[in-house]
């Protein structure tokens, strides 16, 4: 009997710690959803209304109707999409080159690049773009976002290519293939999971980036995160549309997290250190 009691107490303690760990995440996302689905009266009611009754989509309609939301969405897609694409094109071969030539020094450089604060790149890049007259252009933003995407893709790809046995390629090289062919036909297909992980993480960190667009984005070229901060917060102080916009901005990333949960967990615990 005491054993059964102890087991029961154990289970209760376990359930309780699980609840304490998960509930803050649920609270914030639930509240975001709740605010976005309630009218203004319910949003400022005391005591607060938790379940929208009846739920309304008016806030979402307002986000699209009163702001250039679609323009900012397009900016985000161009900047993040472009930065991930170029990041892949140059980052994947670079990861291969570094992994095969075992150059630890370039790996250190990449790590430091991942670790330094974004603001430290921004001051000099801001000056350069000012001289070139590129402040407020999407191309300037896209180039700056390479600071985020290239290091993470290279870093992840080094890990994946290192795990592909070199013997596989040696055989091809002995048979007369050149290094490009052995990369293209042997290493690259085997490293496909790494490419997926690197691409997803690069997308998320680039999409979430705020500071680059705050400094370099123009009125019509800013990306979504700085747009909801700059435009929506000043033009309307009401909570409903703001929560709706916030949810829309983070929705692609949250969906990706749910869909590609396994890849993201693998990538991050494999050494994909976060960016900021």
């Amino acid at each position: 009997m005491p054993v059964a009691l102890e087991r029961l107490l154990n289970r209760i303690a376990f359930g309780l710690s699980l609840f304490v760990l998960v509930s803050p995440a649920i609270l914030v996302f639930f509240w975001m959803l709740s605010l976005s689905l309630k009218n203004e009266v319910d949003n400022t009611a005391w005591p607060p209304v938790f379940i929208p009754n009846p739920p309304t989509l008016a806030n979402y309609v307002e986000v699209f109707a009163r702001n250039n939301f679609l323009l900012y969405l397009w900016n985000s897609i161009i900047v993040t999409g472009g930065a991930v694409l170029f990041g892949m094109l140059i980052g994947v071969p670079a990861g291969y080159g570094i992994a095969r030539s075992k150059s630890a020094k370039s790996a250190v450089l990449i790590l430091i690049a991942r670790m330094t604060p974004a603001l430290s790149y921004l001051i000099p890049l801001f000056m350069v773009f000012q001289i070139l007259g590129m402040i407020g252009t999407k191309s300037a933003l896209l180039i700056t976002h390479l600071v985020i995407t290239v290091p993470i893709i290279v870093w992840i790809m080094i890990g994946y290519f290192e795990n592909i046995p070199a013997e596989l390629e040696d055989a091809a090289l002995v048979d007369g293939a050149n290094t490009w062919q052995s990369f293209r036909h042997i290493a690259l297909p085997l490293a496909r999971p790494g490419i997926v992980v690197g691409g997803i993480l690069a997308f998320i960190f680039s999409w979430n980036n705020f500071i680059f667009s705050v400094v370099l984005g123009g009125k019509n070229t800013r990306t979504l995160p700085s747009a909801i901060y700059n435009v929506l917060t000043f033009e309307q102080i009401s909570w409903g549309p703001l929560a709706a916009a916030a949810l829309l901005v983070t929705l692609p990333v949250l969906l990706l997290t749910v869909i590609a949960q396994r890849e993201i967990v693998a990538g991050l615990s494999a050494g994909g250190l976060k960016d900021g």
């Binding site: 914030v28 996302f29 975001m32 998320i204 999409w207 979430n208 705020f210 979504l224 995160p225 700085s226 909801i228 901060y229 916030a246 949810l247 901005v249 983070t250 990333v253 949250l254 990706l256 997290t257 993201i264 976060k274």
Partner: peptide
């Protein structure tokens, strides 16, 4: 950890 920092 994945959510857009500005949004949350």
């Amino acid at each position: 950890m994945m959510a857009t920092p500005v949004a949350v």
